[in-house]
Design a protein around this nucleic acid. Structure first.
Lengths: 247, 247
DNA sequence: TTCTTCATCTCGAAA
DNA sequence: TTTCGAGGTGAAGAA
């Protein structure tokens, strides 16, 4: 069995020769299909870094938006890839299928050389739907704005994404005594990096608001690591535990 | 055409009914194959966050290591996924194929409900090869150790990954005047986060080495953003431009 | 474009 | 197991 074809645009080939496979891949790309090729191959990448991968059996996916993914039998991440907006090309060299993907800015090139093709397919996919996701940092921000007391009794949010010379502050407001408060939100347990981020915002605002006002910095997250807690104390910053919603 | 089978363990089905598809998926998982199912489906996820995705055509991959990926026709990243070490399960409910993937710690559950299956396949992949990658931060470190003058004339590396209360320093050494030097390496253009990281190492070492020694902090990277450069200046830290090798 | 930060980040190493 | 930082991080939003 070497060829299968169905009514609705799906094309598949089982153990095709290189030329047949090349035709399917080239036609699939041309038609805007999602193309997959499974087989024994070597992979080389040159661009932001450089990599090479000896012969093994892998699953190669070429998307109509120009993305390319090479997956082994392990791992959530592809072993090699190209981002969207690359140009894909299928050729035959020395009787073998070669799939290449290229882009400029930055210059990057991925080459997959097949020793054998087990299966190739072109799937004409359409997907209109957008993912609806809950439990993000943006959701946590909405929750804080709805219920500012989660941060502290008397806390009054005045702005979100307020810009400072150090970047945009998640939530900017005042405490019950009228002191300026900077809130940095994290949807999960925080390490030293988040403390540094909050510290930069506090420093920037103290400079911007000129001296005598001292600015409070509050990190809001489910929890904090020991090292981060120590850093918070050193810099006179505060922590408030709030779980994200996830509903 | 509804079924294809080849000698070497590959199994494919074109437009199978739900029960046929379930059998292929279940058998493929059992055999340790990489399983793909392409068709119109809805996807829900609940775990670290929660998401739902209306009906559309997608490519679902189940890996033998327990990873699951749902890809649309766009983007390098899957629209939904599960990490390795999840348990996959295929069932038929209301005459439809349902693929589920679950893990505990943390509790996470992914459900893919198919309205129709265009194609299903089980690929018995083997891959012994490891990726060889050049142009990483580790390569940059070797380069600096080979040629310390890239950092500064007279710089002498004394240790790599030297541990401090703030974490491990990339390269630890002395300058021509015997002053302690902390080098933080980055393979690409750096922003404010890297300055914070370097600053924490410098602070930790000044504390550890007690007072009178002042510690120099040098950020080594291809380039810096303006804001990061300003932060470096504020904290008395330095920058040296070095390109990663990529050979 | 560049910059900045979030991410169901993933992944690996070390404590 | 948790913590920490690298990553060819990718992706989104703003300047």
């Amino acid at each position: 069995m070497t060829t299968t074809e169905s009514g609705s645009g799906l094309e598949t080939l089982t153990r095709p020769d290189a030329e047949r496979a090349r035709e399917l891949v080239a036609a699939g790309i041309e038609r805007g299909a999602l193309v997959t090729v499974v087989g024994r191959c070597t992979v080389t990448y040159d661009g932001r870094a450089a990599s090479s991968l000896g012969a093994g059996e892998r699953h190669v996916m070429l998307k109509p938006d120009g993305a390319a993914l090479v997956h082994t039998d392990e791992g959530q991440q592809p072993v090699n890839w190209q981002p969207p907006d690359c140009d894909h090309e299928a050729t035959v060299a020395d009787g073998r299928l070669v799939v290449e993907s290229h882009r400029e800015t930055p210059e990057e090139h991925l080459t997959v050389r097949f020793e054998s093709v087990v299966h190739a397919a072109a799937y004409p996919l359409t997907d209109e739907e957008d993912l609806s996701l809950a439990g993000t940092e943006a959701d946590l921000r909405e929750r804080i704005l709805d219920e500012p007391a989660l941060v502290e009794a008397g806390f009054e949010p005045l702005a979100t994404e307020r810009s400072t010379p150090a970047g945009a502050v998640d939530v900017f407001g005042e405490d019950a005594d009228g002191r300026t408060v900077v809130v940095e939100l994290k949807r999960r347990r925080v390490g030293p990096d988040a403390v540094g981020q909050l510290g930069r915002y506090v420093d920037a605002l103290e400079r911007e608001l000129h001296a005598e006002t001292d600015v409070r910095g509050i990190l809001v997250a489910p929890s904090v690591t020991d090292r981060a807690r120590r850093l918070l104390a050193e810099r006179g910053l505060e922590f408030v535990a709030v779980e994200p919603t996830r509903e």
